[in-house]
Every structure is written in structure tokens, then in C-alpha cells.
Design a protein around this nucleic acid. Structure first.
Lengths: 404, 404
DNA sequence: GACCTTGGTTTATCTTGTGAATTAAGATAT
DNA sequence: ATATCTTAATTCACAAGATAAACCAAGGTC
């Protein structure tokens, strides 16, 4: 509507219903009069809208509140266990699924390995089959299915639900949301996994109390999701936040992107393990054994005080800190969150990051700036849950539920 | 409306009138039927809306188009010389004003020195008096005055028009837009100068053809304005784009912010002049004379091939390039623009920047990425013009003109 | 001159939000 | 016990916008 779009009566209804639902969801239990005050809608409109939401079981009336000198107010709350949806994370090698409700609870989990599936068609077939299986296996847990969400590493147009790019798979604008909508006859939402996870932290996790926060994910790639004014930042090309290839070492290792010294070549899990193995091979003393070294082992060793592990994690923190300091200067966020295996080494990692950020960003920007672990670590389907939540709060899904 | 706001019939009218006006402004001359197609509005609605816009002289009918097999279409265009407004830039030392029309043309210019005015009240009094003077001195050039715009270095809440912070002045949430609105009885818009200038490049300047562009301004401070999806990026704290204090040299000079090696300590005009003077004092050969050295002289010398000037500009380009590379990775913009005195040394500066960006950002992000001079250099009031244009295209000002 | 095509307007209808009046249900004062 | 005041929520008549469908306008084509 703001983006050169137009408005009509249906949109007015959708926007206002969403505003009312949102207020009840975030501030409930709450009376109709309070909703009218906060939303700036006329009391008559709130009555009308809440009636429709009640009819569709999206909200419910609770106990009467204490009188404040007159008639007692009826408490309104959103209903969170009446509707279910399927959230999927389509990884490079593994497909994770969960049946969830509107509270964000995972009722059932599933996973499928994707090894050997090299074409997009094979992957899509598996995705559809597994979703169908999850649905048909759990009739007792599903009262009413209202949607699907898929997150994946790659480029997505969240409005159209088209997948524009995915690593390892060659594809050409797959209209994934549309495919799933016609197949399952359900509203379907598709998003980038890191960006969606940042949204999950905003709705359900560690940055619920902020409007501007940044989530940095560190696995074998390094990425970020930037929440600005409560919304995911996405440019025209939907690449905003791709921090893995920021150069942090002028004459560093060669990166697969073609340049040298990218952040990914130093702080990714693979890079950390590789650096550790090199140092061990050179004979540095450590409690770690060289053979099949994992990131988890290195983190545990660092927390336990192993000198070599500490040095490696500290170094990792410094490079991360340098990048975070830049983002702090650029965005002046209210909170920084980190997700990934390496945050297990929190005792070493976070102090190192903080020192760097304090030296390299504006004092007024980093004073009182929390730099913390993300709430969700390895809960792969939470990104999809956030996509559903957003669609609900912004009215699109709300309207479609009321039309069902 | 999208930000948890609500919708009513007035807003629907405003949004649709703005959509129609915008289409006619950007794509005119254009027929009503085409407007309906593009906007997705019903032809009947376009007839109604265009009638109102015509009545208020916001658009006009032009020649009939050639027939394409039926009735000839009536061309519609926006009227750009019927309304005037005052655009001000409130600098630290100087106040610039211009009387402009909706085409962005400056009809009359004025300036006032602010030396000796140390309190916000003095500055505001001067601002109001000078605007009043500009208006009363030019009755013949003003057919109808429709608004005021003020841009300033500092923090602004563009929705409320409050000034939250300004360098050198102590103040505490000055409701500038409101003050001016009550004094002049005109719509008034206030914005940060760098951000508004980025918007001016988007509407009238070098990035008209893009939706995601970044403008970097280099004067005695270094700042940036980021346009994402055709809108200025602004976080909750409205500090997005403050790049001057990104650390680019680990053990660099001390910055007034308290840290070391900030971008500003190397690429600002003052820093460039200072570095040049130091090198000259050490006896390096150059066509430059040490005494009263200016940035303009250094740029001219660099373009002429002076070795010392070239080296300094090249160094400047490298540090700028490093920062630009980071922004390219983070935002994947479609164009980078530079404004400031130093861009006069374009022959040396831009190649140096480009080399850096190519080495330090993702190849797919910097291929085909233009890095250019901004169109507006020293036209201080263009930021305010952009604020008016935005208010018009987004409907707020349009509605208020129709209510006048 | 009959018919087709494209552009633009009129009209009746539908839907929304809203203010004002009204009902509901409590507290408080007499 | 009754009247009165407060606060909560609803009802109802109305205004305003968008729109589909019918219609008018003005050109071309056969």
C-alpha cells in the first residue's frame, strides 16, 4: 500500500483487522475500549472487527476485568492452539520440518536427508512428499491447518514467493510458494533462512524488546539478518546483510568468491577447524587431538581454558568484532545477536567481540548495546514460524484465514 | 498504514490520489486508461481522481494522442510551475534558502551567515525572519505557496518533524516542523541533510534510474544516505549511514569521537589538507605551496599530475574504497554516488576507489556497479526539494494542497 | 452507413469506518 | 431502595470511496 500500491475497501479491512489482532496479540488480555484507544479506531469499528475475529476463533473472550468505576471490561486474547501450520527448512543437505501452532510451539518434528538429490525437481518432490507425510501422520494434532512456510539458504522474493537462487542447485526463478499453494491449497510463505531467523528472534527470541536488531549466523557460511523498525531489511536485490565476504584481512586466504581475506575465510566453522589443525600440526601444545577435530570440541576446550583453543576463538572474536563494529556504526542497532556453534565458546568469544566493538565504533552507539547469544540455536524451523507470524500480524494470512 | 497504523476512507483517498499523481508525474504524458492499467485502479476511479487533481491544478490535460483504432486518448501531465515552496538548508555556519517550484527549479536564492548565533532560539529566529523575507520579497514569482522544507546536519524524526540533535547547538527535541507550520500556516517538512540529498539524487539526480543507491558525502564530516527500494533507510534511532566513524586504520589518528583511525580522520577535507601540509613541511616536492592550502588546490594539483597530491588523493580513495566495499557487500546497491569537494580530483580518486571495491567486495556485487560523482554538488537546498517531492508523491502534501 | 475498437463517464451498489444515540453493567451517593 | 454517575460495548443511520456494468464519445474499417 505504501509502495506505490493502491488501496481499496478490502485492504482497509485487512489493515485494520491486522491492527486489532496485533494489539490483542501483543498486549492482551485487553478490553475493546483499550484496543480502540491504542489503534485510534472508533469503538464501533473495534466491536465490528472483534466480532469477526471471534467468529473465526482467532481471538477469544476471557474473564471480566475488575471494575474501574463502571461496567467491567471483557478481556480479549488471541487463540494460539486452534490453528496449526507446517514450517520447513530446506537446507543444502537436510530437510527439517515441524508441525507448529500459532504460539510458535513445535508439536511434531521430522527430518529427511537430501543426499544424492542434485536437481531442484528431486528436492521439490521430496519436500512435497514429506510435508504430505507430516500432515497425514498427525490428524489428531491438527485442528485446522492454515499454512506452510519454507525457509532456505538463498535468494527469495518474499512477496511473490519465488526462489531466485540457491547454492549447489541450478534453478531459474522457481515459484515455490505458488507451487505449494496449488498443491496443498494452503497459504504458503517462503523466505531466506537467516533473514527469517532474525525475524524469529524479533517475535519470539532474544530481541523481542527491540525494533532494530542484528542477528549474525556463523556456520559454514557467515550471514546476517538486519531488523530495522521491526522489519527485515531487504533491498531490491534482496542481498542485504551478506556479510560473509566483507574483507577483514588484506592479504588473507583465498575465498571461493575469488577475493582474499573474506570474513568467511576466518570465522566460519570450517575455517576455525582448519586453523586449529594447522596449529596442532605445527606442534603447538593443546588438549585437543589433531585427528577428527570438530568446532564443538574447540569451543569446549576454549571454555575450559586450553591455550590454543582460546587463542583461536579470541582471534575469531576479533574479526567478528571488527565486522560487528562496522555494522554498529552503520545501523546503530539496539541489540546484536549471534547464532552458530561457535557461540558455545561464549566465555572467550563475547569479551573479545566486545573489546573490538568498543574500540572501533562510536561510543554513544556501543554504550548499553547488548551483544548476546541468539535464543534459537539449531531450531531450524523457527524461521518459518516467524514468516507465518509476520503474515498473520501484517494481515495477509489473517484475511485468508477469515476467508477459509 | 503499514506500521501498525490503521486505515480509513480518507487514507484510501490519499493513497490512491498519490498513486495516480505519481504515475502521471513519472510516466506522463499518459492517458487515463493507461493510468488505470498501471495502478490497478478501476477506470471509474481514475476518472474521479483525475477530475479532482485537475480541479486543483495539480495535473493538466494536453494534446490528444494518435488513435490506435478507436477514440483518441487525452494526455495527462503534472503541473510543475503552478506551485512554489521554500527550501532551506540550515548549516552550522550558513543558512541557505531557495524559492523553488515542483520541477525542482530554484527561482530565487538567498543566504545568511549564522556567525555569532550560538543558541537554538537565535538560529530559529533568523530562520523564520529570513523565510519571511524571501517570501515577501518575491510576490511576483509566487503563484501559490504550498510548503516549507528544512534540512540540517543532525538527527531528525521525519514523521514528527522534531530535531533531536544538532552539532554545536544544545537543544532538546525542538518541534521545528510544528513551529514553522503554526508560524507560516504551511505544510512543513524537516529532514537530515545527507539523507535528503540522497533522496534528491534519487528523484532528480544521478540515481534516478535505480531503487537502491548510496550517496556518500565528504566535507568536514563524512556521511551517507542509503536509498533502499526507493526509500531512505532510517532505523529507530535515525542514525543509519553514519559512516564517518567506521575504523579504517587500526592505529590511526585520534578522532574527536574518542576512537582512533576513523574514516573521518583520513578522508575529510580537513584531514586531507592536514596530511598535505605535513608532507609539504617534511620537504616533499610538489607544485603546492604550504601556506594557506585548500582542498580545491589539492584536487586541481592531483588532476594536473602533481605527485604529492596524487598520492594523497589515491590514499583517500583507498580508504573510501574500503568503506564503500563494505557497504557494497552489505547492501548490494545499484549505484554509488559521491559528493564533496574531493570529487573534483576525479581522475585519481575514482580509479583508486574502484580498484579497492573490486578487490574487497563480491564480484557479482561490483560488476556493473557504477561509482560516480553525485549530480548535486553544493546545491544546498536540493535536499529540501526532495522532501517536498516525497511528501507530494506519497500523498501527504498532495492531500493538503487539495484541502487548501 | 453498419460495425468494431478504444477512451472515458455515469450510475447503482457494496463495503467500510464513524459519530451519536443507546444499552449494559457496575460503583457511589442519597 | 433509588437515583445518579462511570465505564464498556453495541446499534444505527450516514458519509465516502471503489467498482462493475451500462453507457456515451470519438475514432477507424469494411
Amino acid at each position: 500500500m505504501t509502495d506505490g500500491q493502491i488501496a481499496n475497501i478490502d485492504l482497509v479491512k485487512q489493515v485494520n483487522a491486522a491492527a486489532v489482532y496485533r494489539i490483542i496479540d501483543l498486549q492482551g488480555p485487553i478490553s475493546r475500549v483499550k484496543v480502540a484507544e491504542i489503534s485510534q479506531l472508533a469503538p464501533a469499528s473495534v466491536t465490528k472487527i472483534t466480532r469477526q475475529l471471534l467468529e473465526h476463533d482467532l481471538i477469544r473472550e476471557e474473564a471480566l476485568q475488575e471494575s474501574t468505576g463502571g461496567r467491567r471490561a471483557i478481556s480479549l486474547m488471541t487463540v494460539r492452539d486452534r490453528f496449526q501450520f507446517v514450517s520447513c527448512r530446506l537446507g543444502r543437505r537436510t530437510l527439517y520440518l515441524a508441525l507448529c501452532d500459532l504460539a510458535g510451539r513445535e508439536l511434531v518434528q521430522m527430518r529427511r536427508e537430501l543426499v544424492g538429490q542434485s536437481t531442484i525437481d528431486e528436492v521439490l518432490a521430496t519436500l512435497i512428499a514429506t510435508i504430505a507425510e507430516l500432515i497425514s501422520n498427525n490428524p489428531r494434532k491438527i485442528r485446522k491447518l492454515i499454512g506452510l512456510a519454507v525457509t532456505l539458504p538463498g535468494l527469495v522474493n518474499p512477496e511473490s514467493g519465488e526462489v531466485l537462487y540457491m547454492p549447489t542447485l541450478t534453478l531459474n526463478k522457481v515459484p515455490l510458494a505458488q507451487l505449494l499453494e496449488t498443491h496443498f491449497a494452503l497459504p504458503c510463505y517462503v523466505g531466506n533462512d537467516t533473514r527469517s531467523l532474525a525475524l524469529a528472534e524479533h517475535f519470539f527470541g532474544a530481541s523481542q524488546d527491540t525494533q532494530d536488531a542484528i542477528l549474525i549466523t556463523i556456520h559454514n557460511g557467515v550471514g546476517s539478518g538486519i531488523i530495522s523498525k521491526g522489519r527485515v531489511l531487504l533491498g531490491q536485490n534482496r542481498n542485504v546483510g551478506e556479510i560473509g565476504h566483507i574483507q577483514v584481512e588484506r592479504f588473507g586466504r583465498r575465498c571461493h568468491c575469488g577475493n582474499f581475506g573474506c570474513l568467511e575465510t576466518i570465522v566460519s566453522n570450517a575455517a576455525i577447524v582448519e586453523r586449529s589443525q594447522e596449529l596442532l600440526a605445527r606442534g603447538h601444545a593443546s588438549s585437543l587431538s589433531s585427528a577428527p577435530l570438530t568446532i564443538e570440541q574447540i569451543c569446549r576446550a576454549a571454555n575450559a581454558g586450553d591455550a590454543l583453543a582460546c587463542q583461536i576463538i579470541q582471534e575469531t572474536g576479533e574479526y567478528l568484532g571488527r565486522t560487528i563494529a562496522i555494522m554498529v556504526n552503520l545501523f546503530n542497532p539496539e541489540k546484536i545477536l549471534l547464532a552458530g556453534e561457535v557461540v558455545e565458546a561464549d566465555k572467550i568469544l563475547f569479551p573479545a567481540i566486545r573489546r573490538c566493538v568498543e574500540q572501533q565504533s562510536l561510543p554513544s552507539f556501543h554504550q548499553n548495546l547488548p551483544i548476546e547469544r541468539a535464543y534459537f540455536q539449531g531450531q531450524h524451523t523457527m524461521g518459518g514460524v516467524a514468516l507465518i507470524k509476520r503474515a498473520l500480524l501484517e494481515g495477509d494470512l489473517l484475511q485468508r484465514i477469515m476467508e477459509m
